[in-house]
């Protein structure tokens, strides 16, 4: 019985406590940089697309809202011909970001993407691609990967030794 009265008193004391609610449209919430909001595709420091169209994000996505088509440019760089995210299905779980081997796909702390028309929730590559590097500056997949592309032969990547010539007997 006493605990009941104490409970009531403690609840009543909340009358004099500040309210937690953020009055949203007037007052913006302070979102941490890692907040999982609107998805973007980033570029590497040279301005090239980071995405190598490996489909890992599409596979990881639990609601299957990523669609893309891989293709290759004249240098042998893979990139997505189209890259489409249906944000009316996306649950902002961030699995795509975790799956991505190239830091291309990233979630940003922006959530204000309400639309009246459902079709407008489908973002194409030109809507997703930003001109910066997002959360991981300085990373350039093609510079560290051992893959050969136009302008970069095997062994020319950063931290990579020239390949061993297995036909030679020289030490």
């Amino acid at each position: 019985m006493l605990s009941v009265i104490r409970t009531l008193w403690n609840v009543f004391l909340h009358t004099f406590q500040p309210r937690e609610t953020i009055q949203y449209p007037e007052e913006k919430p302070n979102l941490p940089p890692r907040h999982k909001g609107r998805i973007i595709l980033s570029r590497d420091p040279d301005g090239g697309e980071r995405c190598v169209a490996c489909h890992l994000c599409a596979v990881a996505c639990p609601v299957d809202c990523i669609a893309l088509q891989a293709t290759e440019d004249e240098n042998g760089r893979r990139y997505p011909e189209f890259f489409r995210i249906n944000f009316s299905r996306c649950i902002f779980c961030g699995y795509c970001e975790e799956a991505c081997p190239t830091y291309a796909i990233q979630l940003t702390p922006d959530f204000e993407m309400g639309e009246f028309n459902r079709q407008n929730m489908v973002y194409e590559k030109e809507h997703l691609l930003i001109s910066g590097e997002g959360k991981y500056p300085g990373y350039n997949f093609w510079k560290v990967a051992g893959v050969k592309i136009g302008g970069k032969d095997k062994g020319e990547a950063e931290n990579e030794a020239a390949p061993v010539d297995v036909h030679s007997l020289m030490p």
Binding site: V11, F12, H14, T15, P18, R19, T21, Q23
Partner: peptide, 8 residues
């Protein structure tokens, strides 16, 4: 209720 739960 909102007042006592620190809401609006």
């Amino acid at each position: 209720l909102a007042l006592w739960q620190d809401r609006y």
